[in-house]
């Protein structure tokens, strides 16, 4: 790792101020950023740890029924505290990494990083979540902009994520067996006004919505409804863990499983 300083502010305002420094970077749970730093793929001058800010932590239900999760809330907390309100989301959080990783990793960190194989982006996109920062609110559809790329500005902190709670939902992940990231993960969420399907792990462009499946499932919410659809392997990732064809194949299989489980 290159050398850097660490600051641990206790309020969002102090964190935002600290991030104003040149080459400063926010540090959530660090479960992705620290390995990245070890590989010298990032060279911040200062890390601003968000783990000591109480107002970033917690799970609650808003007046409109949406589930609101503080940006600094760990996966373990979401797994435990969202279970009653949004079981599919809680199950997703409980399936990330392993227990020690879930005790550190945070939802804000995951969404800010936008790893193409991360789980949370699928939930946020399929739920039509709102990403709330210290500066503004963004719809998930506008937020994700490709591999490791989001609409966040420099120094902007995710303070909260608001999930409209669907009638039915499920997330199915085919794990890359070594890392337990998603080789292909599909989140299906059925709302009164239609079904949303988001796919992570598969595409070279990062998390995406499978609109054909959404249309088919909005008309008929059953696994059979997507049976006739096909997913092109064009633009799918190929690596040591799976070919583009395999990933394209898995998108459909995981979608059917998610619908069946929802």
């Amino acid at each position: 790792m290159y050398a850097f300083d660490i600051e641990r502010p206790t309020t969002i305002a102090d964190a935002v101020a600290a991030l104003g420094a040149e080459d400063a970077q926010a540090l959530g749970g660090g479960q992705t950023l620290i390995p990245t730093l070890k590989q010298r793929l990032a060279m911040p001058s200062k890390l601003v740890s968000l783990t000591a800010i109480p107002e970033l932590k917690g799970v609650c239900v808003a007046d409109d029924g949406a589930l609101c999760i503080g940006g600094g809330t760990t996966h373990a907390t979401v797994a435990a505290q969202a279970a009653a309100h949004y079981p599919a989301l809680a199950a997703l959080a409980g399936g990330i990494g392993d227990p020690a990783v879930r005790n550190r990793g945070t939802i804000g960190g995951s969404l800010a990083n936008n790893d193409p194989a991360a789980c949370y982006p699928a939930a946020a996109l399929a739920s039509g979540a709102t990403i709330v920062t210290n500066a503004r609110q963004m719809a998930a559809d506008d937020y994700f902009q490709g591999l490791f790329t989001t609409a966040l500005d420099e120094g902007e902190i995710i303070t909260e994520v608001r999930f409209p709670v669907p009638d039915r939902a499920a997330y199915m992940k085919f794990q890359q067996p070594a890392s337990r990231f998603a080789l292909t993960g599909v989140f299906v969420a059925k709302y009164a006004d239609g079904v949303r399907v988001a796919v992570t792990g598969a595409s070279e462009g990062g998390v995406f919505r499978w609109t054909e499946a959404e249309a088919a499932l909005s008309a008929d919410f059953s696994a059979d409804a997507v049976a006739g659809l096909s997913v092109s392997s064009n633009g799918m990732m190929g690596d040591v863990h799976g070919t583009p064809d395999y990933r394209a194949h898995l998108v459909k299989v995981m979608t059917k499983r998610a619908v069946a489980a929802a």
């Binding site: 641990r8 660090g30 620290i34 390995p35 227990p99 020690a100 990783v101 005790n103």
Partner: peptide, 12 residues
């Protein structure tokens, strides 16, 4: 809480 000490800074 159980954490992995290789993926946490001492300062934290």
């Amino acid at each position: 809480e159980a954490v992995k000490a290789c993926t946490m800074f001492a300062a934290e």
